[in-house]
C-alpha cells in the first residue's frame, strides 16, 4: 500500500448511484425474474460523477438541499448500499449514525437498547459492557435508563441513541443530521464531543445547520442534484450554498426522475 493511499480515509472516484423506478409494482418482480432480457424500470441517478477524498483525521461537512443525494452518499461510504458506477475505498472502522436509534425496541429498557445499539455498531459484548456506564453518563436520562424506551420522550430517546454512537471507537464517524435533536444543553454536549472527536478520528458530517458546518469542519462539499457543486473552504462553501438557496428558491421541478 502506497503512502498516498494511506493518507486517505475515504476515496470516491466517479461515484454514481442509480435507483430503479418502476411504473407499477409488478415490474419489480419481472425485473428479478426476466431482468437479463430487458429493463422494466427507469433509472434515476441520485448521484453522478462524485469525486471526493477525505484525509485521515479530516472533518468533512456535506451540505445540500433535500433529495440532493447526501444520505445516499453516506450510505455508500458506509457500504450499506453499493454504487452503480465508480469506486469507493475506505480505510478504518466506520460507525454510521444515519438514523438515531436504528434498531431500538420500544418495549426494551434504555440499558438493553444501549447494548443492542453497541452490537449493531460493531462492539463486542465485553466492549459494550465496559462502556455502558459512560454511555449512561453521557445520555443523562437518570432513572429512566432502566425503564422501557416507550416511556421516554423523543428527545430522551435521541440522547440515548447519540450517547451510544459517541462511545464506539470508529476511525470514521459518519453522521446524518444528528444534532437537530435534543435541547440546547445536550446539543452543546454533542458539539463538544465532535470537537474532541476531531482530534482523533475522521468525521463526515451532514447538516442543514450551516453555522455548525462552518464551525466543525475543515472542508465542506455542497452536493446539488447528485453532483458536487462547490467543494473547499467551509465558510466559502456554505456562503455560496446560502446565496443559491435564496436566489433559486424552492421550486417543484427540482425533483424529477429521468435523465
Amino acid at each position: 500500500m502506497s503512502s498516498e493511499q494511506d493518507d486517505f480515509a475515504i476515496q470516491c472516484d466517479g461515484l454514481g448511484k442509480a435507483y430503479q423506478f418502476y411504473v407499477n409494482y409488478n415490474d419489480r418482480l419481472r425485473q428479478v425474474l426476466f431482468g437479463r432480457k430487458r429493463k422494466y424500470y427507469r433509472e434515476f441517478w441520485v448521484l453522478r460523477g462524485v469525486e471526493m477524498k477525505v484525509r485521515r483525521g479530516e472533518s468533512l461537512g456535506i451540505i445540500g438541499r433535500n433529495g440532493s443525494g447526501k444520505t445516499t452518499l453516506l450510505q455508500i461510504v458506509c457500504g450499506i448500499t453499493a454504487p452503480t458506477e465508480g469506486t469507493i475505498r475506505t480505510h478504518g472502522r466506520i460507525a454510521p449514525v444515519l438514523a438515531l436509534g436504528a434498531g431500538f425496541d420500544y418495549e426494551l429498557t434504555g440499558r438493553e437498547n444501549a447494548k443492542i445499539g453497541c452490537a449493531i455498531l460493531g462492539l463486542s459484548r465485553s466492549e459494550a459492557a465496559e462502556r455502558l456506564e459512560a454511555i449512561a453518563d453521557f445520555a443523562a436520562v437518570g432513572e429512566f435508563l432502566d425503564q422501557p424506551l416507550k416511556y421516554y420522550s423523543s428527545g430522551m430517546a435521541s440522547r440515548l441513541a447519540f450517547a451510544v454512537c459517541a462511545h464506539v471507537d470508529a476511525d470514521i464517524l459518519v453522521v446524518d443530521e444528528a444534532l437537530s435533536v435534543g435541547d440546547e444543553a445536550f446539543c452543546q454536549k454533542c458539539f463538544k464531543f465532535f470537537e474532541e472527536y476531531r482530534k482523533r478520528g475522521t468525521l463526515v458530517f451532514v447538516s442543514h445547520d450551516l453555522g455548525q458546518v462552518a464551525a466543525l469542519c475543515d472542508r465542506a462539499v455542497w452536493i446539488d442534484q447528485g453532483r458536487v457543486r462547490v467543494a473547499g473552504d467551509p465558510a466559502a462553501t456554505t456562503e455560496a450554498y446560502h446565496e443559491a438557496l435564496i436566489s433559486e428558491g424552492d421550486r417543484v421541478d427540482r425533483f424529477h426522475i429521468g435523465p
Partner: peptide, 11 residues
Amino acid sequence: EHAPFVKRSIF
C-alpha cells in the same frame, strides 16, 4: 421488518 437495521446501519 428489519429495514432500519439494513438501511441505516452496517448490518
